[in-house]
Design a protein around this nucleic acid. Structure first.
Lengths: 204, 204
DNA sequence: TCCCTGATGTGAACGATGCATACATCTTAG
DNA sequence: CTAAGATGTATGCATCGTTCACATCAGGGA
């Protein structure tokens, strides 16, 4: 359908998303202006408003895309983790994603998840459910709800502290070792805490 | 010294900080404009530039103040924690601070900690050292460096997930219980891991 | 005591941004 | 084939960050 003539872009919606994504990764959140997006897409300043209600909507769309990418990135680390080691590998992938796409990652978690951003909410719930599924597969006997939020929080926190330069992120190996060790520290206890019996506490 | 006449403010620097802080908590990060700060301080739009190089410098100053407040808030939760329960209480205070000052907390961790913002760097290192001290007091035998970053990450991640509405934050009690349980889950393992083999070798 | 230098605040101005409104152009359903 | 949407454009407004030249004040040296 994109018949010549420079008037109609063809797929401005996608072009805006791509441009926004690029600007975000190039110049950070501050560089992501609707006008810059329009310029990059080779279109008038107000054209993007036909596809995105306002700046926030665009950012939200980029964030949602980020969530999806994160999900596939995690799946690539291991398709169906069911051991602590495999789960740790996924955790490492999570942190690495954050470090490889800092601005994107920040945008994904920058603002309280407005219930309005339907696409975004769905995307984050997908991630949440994914984590939970993994935890369930790895520790069938544990209260997966509690443990999965705990592990998510741990990994999420590690990602942010690394992003903020509070942790040693000099090489991917260092980061991977650190994340792996942290996750294992958490899991060393969890299987013992299954069901009713907190019995097998390691007593020291 | 503030001798009459409305020309010189007296202590514009502090007034700007206060105004900025207020605006941040009222309207979020977006509402914090230098011009709004100037208006609130009852001063011309460019006056703040005498005290802050640019917007970022002001925000950085607010963030630094936030770090200091967080530190005292944690100290209030328990002056010198040395048991897992006391440490958990501090963790709860951390998350509660984030929930009580969402915009401030976000500003504190919004951007990579620019080494330029001297005041800010110092403040964050203070927090980091504080966490480490607590962990050392609580688990004298453990590799405090590793464990303290792990616990910080856990708590920090919980704070952010709550801020983002990904976790149930309906009541302070719910949050406290959740944080406490997460921290205990982590610590259930750690004492056992004392001695030499602290890090990454939980086989199973 | 005077005044002069530096610190502090003012005012106007520039370019950029988000957004609303009115208008132009294309596509397509009937 | 044409009229109605869908999609882009042009223009304009309020706000913002920031710069620069200028005004005002305070305090110290003569």
């Amino acid at each position: 359908m994109p018949r010549s003539s420079t008037y109609h872009h063809g797929d401005l919606r996608a072009a805006c998303l791509r441009a926004a994504r690029e600007l975000l990764e190039e110049d950070g959140s501050a560089g992501l202006s609707l006008r810059a997006v329009a310029r990059r897409a080779g279109v008038s300043a107000t054209a993007p408003y036909r596809h995105y209600a306002d700046r926030e909507a665009l950012v939200s769309a980029v964030a949602a895309e980020g969530y999806r990418e994160l999900a596939t990135h995690l799946a690539q680390a291991h398709p169906a983790p069911s051991t602590p080691d495999e789960l740790a590998a996924v955790a490492v992938a999570y942190v690495r994603f954050a470090l490889e796409h800092p601005a994107l990652f920040r945008a994904m978690f920058a603002e309280p998840c407005d219930p309005t951003g339907e696409e975004r909410v769905a995307a984050t719930e997908a991630i949440s459910a994914y984590v939970r599924t993994i935890v369930e597969a790895t520790f069938p006997d544990v209260d997966a709800g509690a443990l999965s939020t705990t592990v998510w929080a741990l990994v999420h926190g590690l990602a942010f502290l690394h992003l903020d330069g509070k942790l040693d992120s000099s090489t991917p190996e260092v980061v991977a070792a650190q994340v792996t060790s942290a996750v294992h520290a958490l899991f060393a206890a969890s299987p013992a805490m299954s069901g009713a019996a907190a019995t097998a506490r390691p007593t020291a």
